[in-house]
Design a protein around this nucleic acid. Structure first.
Lengths: 214, 214, 214, 214
DNA sequence: GATGAATGAGGGTTCATTCAT
DNA sequence: TATGAATGAACCCTCATTCAT
């Protein structure tokens, strides 16, 4: 009941690309586009099927129901996002400030580069937060852990003030990014430069975190 | 079409409280509770009516449709929130840091004190962000202006660094508060202390903003 | 229950015009316009009230319900129509052909002169024929009797063939007029000249009825 | 938007009877019965579905909405009626009077033989005449053309007077038949014999049309 | 596995009618 | 008499989901 989906494909998340795996991904891509465009509740399963080039019923071979489609979409996309963020942090080296900046800038780049994905993560994630609470969303937990990890390691390295609880800082930073993303998505570029704004809040947070030698 | 509601009451927004105004408020209160509890899409108009103690059709005397009910709820509640925030800032005196802390702490207190309202503002506001974009939401604009005003006056007073664009800072601070509110609402107190967390991010932001005498 | 209406006015159909009688007529006039424009089922009682310059509830002081409003409208208008037709026949003298022509031409003139009334009689009368059957419609019976009377007196005078049953001829002639009226109303004058068409079918009927001296 | 229906069946109007075509016809038959019995506005979609032995939603697979169901019913039935009339005229040979009588008598027989259909054509066709005007109704146009054709060919053959415009005569004859049908349907046989009445008006019209050798 | 026609519960909304003022 | 805010039953239509093929 709570186990999510992927009937025709093997349980392993190993790629092993086949017709099935491809069909599943096409459905997810169609859902991403339509959830972003119309919102979860206004998006029609039949339309997702049409866009994915499959029959309505086929969706139910890969996903338990419409809710599961949304949840699976999150899992799939957050996995990718987390991988990108982790890689970017790695690339940034060991300097705490550089790592945090890498996280923030990468997230901003992601929003600009994949507006549909951003729309879903930003708008729909929240709406579904309530049923997210039930089903839980481990990938979002990972996301926060990655961010908190950057903060924590900076504190341990003595670069960031240790008074701030890292999980709270992580949530706060995510909140900033999320809100900026929303503002950018709604104004779609007209209002301000998402990348520049990310830079500004990077500075704000870094200055806020930096250790004072009193 | 864009004019929202209030058929039986006079067009003036003057309070003039009567049976009508009371009924309208009862409907809004019922909507607030049910939108918070079930979400906008799962909340049933019939149930809102029952909870408000009116007939189903009565709702349509005061609101154009279910969407208008949500929008009107935002307008009504944001107006109140803005008034409270403005008053708190005033009370805090002229010291920029104190004023910003007042904003943050008042918002946090508001969330804790009115979880249903917070749920609607935090979760549903975003869901409807898309139709918010169309109908616009001047009250939320006011909210951001109040916050940006605090930052700006601090910059003018020389207390806050002037490099940060105040509107971006305002959005970022709202994002932090919003995300903390969401986390608190979903965990409902179990996870962490909203007020303490607000204190922490207040410190973070203030340190991030404070002017350095290099 | 079946007794129709007119509460505030006396039961007599005597004119005695007062504020009440005037209001009743204003409601009927508004109903005529709106039934013609939108059809009985699509016309809204509230709109009729607005157009008549009375409150919604006021209509129910003069008419039992919406159905009764339609029936009363028929009665009122058919009474007028019948009176005009009777007068026209009278004026036409005693010559059977002239009398029948008078009936036909007067009816055609009436349609052209009062399209809204014609629309109601032509379109709505039929729709409501079914509930007309229950409530009966004595005025329409009178209408047919007037027409049948013209035919019958022509037969008695030896001008019209006596083989044709007068009531059937009356219905047939009304059917012709009604259909022409409908065609004219839908094309609203573009297609053909209602008066000329009435002349043509007058000739057709008169030639069909005229006695042959074999 | 104007294209009517038949989603699950192929676009061709070719019969190709299958489960789909059968279901569509069952829905039309149920609609015919219920529109006749209760009238278009009082007939409930749910009841039509029940009578047709399908789910409510199924109706919307074959028809765009309730209005479209009515229009499609007209198209379907008028097509049949026109075919029958055409065949009857053919069978009647080349004698103009016989052809006109064939038309009239066949129509009368049709009314008596299919009262439900007659009720719909007679009562509901008119009610919906207004939206008929918008959507147009080519089948009814064909009906009038068939009748006008009979008249015209009689005029060309020198049997009917050429002064009468054939289209006006056609409308008039249809009006007679329509009104007689209505009277018969409302009195359902008690009042008079539809077939005999049709014979009478046949004579009336034929005498009205016949050429006089002055 | 894949299809898509069929299902039918469910809900937002309308609007004739009532009745307290 | 007149009002018009309030009522609530009623209904068309949507759309997630199923299942025979």
């Amino acid at each position: 009941m709570t186990a999510h989906s992927s009937p025709p494909s093997p349980r392993t998340s190993a790629p092993r690309p086949g017709a099935s795996e491809d069909k599943r991904e096409r459905i997810l891509a169609a859902a991403e586009r339509l959830f972003a465009e119309r919102g979860f509740f206004h998006a029609r399963v039949a339309e997702i099927a049409r866009e994915a080039g499959v029959a309505d019923g086929t969706i139910y071979l890969y996903f338990k129901n419409k809710d599961d489609l949304l949840i699976s979409l999150f899992e799939s996309r957050m996995e990718r996002v987390n991988a990108e963020l982790t890689a970017a942090i790695e690339r940034a080296g060991s300097e705490p400030a550089a790592r945090l900046r890498a996280f923030i800038d990468t997230y901003a780049a992601l929003v600009v580069g994949s507006p549909a994905l951003a729309e879903v993560l930003t708008v729909e994630l929240r709406q579904s937060a309530k049923f997210m609470k039930e089903y839980q969303n481990p990938r979002f937990g990972d996301f926060l852990k990655i961010l908190a990890g950057v903060v924590e390691s900076g504190q341990e390295a003595g670069a960031f003030d240790s008074e701030m609880p890292a999980p709270v800082v992580a949530r706060a930073v995510f909140g900033m990014l999320d809100e900026l993303a929303l503002a950018w998505l709604l104004g779609r570029g007209e209002k301000f430069d998402m990348v520049r704004a990310a830079g500004a809040i990077g500075s704000l947070v870094l200055r806020g975190l930096e250790r004072r030698t009193s």
